[in-house]
Design a protein around this nucleic acid. Sequence first.
DNA 1: CCTATTATAGACATAAGATATCCATAATAA
DNA 2: TTATTATGGATATCTTATGTCTATAATAGG
Lengths: 152, 152
Amino acid sequence: MQFSKSTGYALHTLIHLAQAERGRYVGIKELASKQGLPESYLSKIMSKLRQDGIVRAVTGASGGYELARPGSEITFYDVISVVEGRQQMYECHAANEHQHELFAEADASGCECLVKKVMDGAERQMLDYLKQHTIQGVLDAASFSCSPEHRA
Amino acid sequence: MQFSKSTGYALHTLIHLAQAERGRYVGIKELASKQGLPESYLSKIMSKLRQDGIVRAVTGASGGYELARPGSEITFYDVISVVEGRQQMYECHAANEHQHELFAEADASGCECLVKKVMDGAERQMLDYLKQHTIQGVLDAASFSCSPEHRA
DNA sequence: CCTATTATAGACATAAGATATCCATAATAA
DNA sequence: TTATTATGGATATCTTATGTCTATAATAGG
Ligand code: SF4
Ligand code: SF4
């Protein structure tokens, strides 16, 4: 159970865009080479981010990408839910219904599976945390004294 | 990013064992058929659970499995960390170090990556929640009025 | 209008991991 | 001694992630 590499790519790309001067479009070439990964692959990820309204894209000469809204309004959750998809982390694969005879419980609107309730609850804890952290937040907390060239 | 089916298999199996009368060994045949899955596959999962001290196994006629400790002391975290492995959910795959010039921050013992800090923090939220929920906890919360045969 | 540049989208290829099967062996109860 | 049961390795299959390639559309600038 791991985040895909694509998630890391997306996060780093958005951080890069957040650092770019406002109004400038950053091309896929620059974004990909900075991370040392294939342009064609990253462009697919960017396409998803665009379709989800996280970045804007402009085709043509001197085109490229820019953030669609301030980095302070782009949460880790936003990014991850686009790249990883929105399926839940735990799915019930029960073929027959024999096995869960005892695992459901009364709730306001009826019965629910207690196994899934725990698993979904765990997922929610993680997602809530991710919603509280933004791209800009990471940049703001960065300390110059820790950049590689400054550390001997 | 999803939990593997194996995790579901393991959880259901342990719940089954927790319901079995104490001192009785439950065979792989019963455990597998209840969930409608291949014995050979489930036995590999059980083998991992045994190596991790979550269940005990007895070879030979009338052998099988039993919980190694009370269900109230087996957390969802225990199970998931065995089945899914213990690698962290986010790994940095940076080939060069050029890309993280600004993302580290001073901390008590030095510098750390702020991206990873957020991702690890999110994972921790989830794991802490899973540590607070046990196999027995699910059984205790189950309500008879919700079992299938009782619901019309 | 023409050309170079750049994003887009689909098809395709490859690698990795999850899921499943098979078989030979060891351990135990009866 | 025999039937039963778990164990572990090897292998096969299926799915998903990752990466590549190519054709197309859109735009800036000359
Ligand atoms: S108990 Fe819950 S997770 Fe298990 S089979 Fe029933 S519905 Fe699915
Ligand atoms: S910023 Fe963090 S996650 Fe990104 S490349 Fe540097 S160490 Fe890895």
